[in-house]
Amino acid sequence: MDFLNAVVQGTLLGGLYALFAAGLSLIFGVMRLVNIAHGDLIVLAAYLGLTTTVVLGVHPLVALIVVVPAMAGIGYVLQRGVLNHTLGDDILPPLLVTFGLSVIIQNALLEGYSADPQKMDAGVLETASVALGPLSLGLLPLLTFAIAVAVIAGLQWTFYRTPLGRAFRATSDNQDIAQLMGLNKRHVFGLAMALALAVTAVAGILLGIRTSFDPSVGGGRLIFGFEAVIIGGLGNLWGTLVGGVILGVAQTLGATINPGWQLLAGHIAFLVILAVRPNGLFPRISG
């Protein structure tokens, strides 16, 4: 019973991790950029959500209407203004620059919001639950999981069924030839980062409803997202969801054995899968 409960709760938690991971995966897929600041951008989105709820007096989910376009805009400007200049044959510059960006975001958030933990108030959504047989499932985790599935389905559709997705894939395949097709790769990369940070906005708000956060928690979110991407297999969006679920289940199972083992169990699951399948469970399957 405890076991079943842990598996179900962990699966739902995996939806949140998949949302952490999706943007990371998309960016790596399109431009081979590992964004060290990804976790801090999630936290930034949570703070933007907090400010929106406070200033406009709206529910955190309504704040998505503001935060999603805001993060997308930040993503586009960040890519065109900074990150595009770091891309090239050498993989080190983007790592260094996004690491620097991570530090800058953390310090700016400390300045702006202090180190005190914050939380968004989502009212009844936080405590409501539905009974499913012997299990009691929180409405928020259920909603989070449903949103994760919808977001990944939407990204998948964008990637494989739209002209934008075609441009993403072509640019990822061969930047030179993509440009010969009239694609401005700087713009394409800007759009990819905008889309990734739009997803990050959703992740940040759901995170900020679920738990309290402070400017330092970005690193942990980066690790979870990163592990979910690697477990699922690079470049596979549905794999990312599976990766998130595996990580979530490992963590909740670990926690039922001993609360202190929650994070450790997740990392162990990651390492075991990495050892057995170095390319993740579903590497680079398309369509």
């Binding site: 441009a167 894939r169 072509a170 395949d173 030839i177 398309s286």
Partner: peptide, 17 residues
């Protein structure tokens, strides 16, 4: 130098971009 992740038709369509 075709785009390997694109189908034949998608390769043609991206040319028409």
């Amino acid at each position: 130098q075709l785009f390997p992740s694109l189908s034949v038709e998608e390769n043609l369509m991206i040319g028409g971009r």
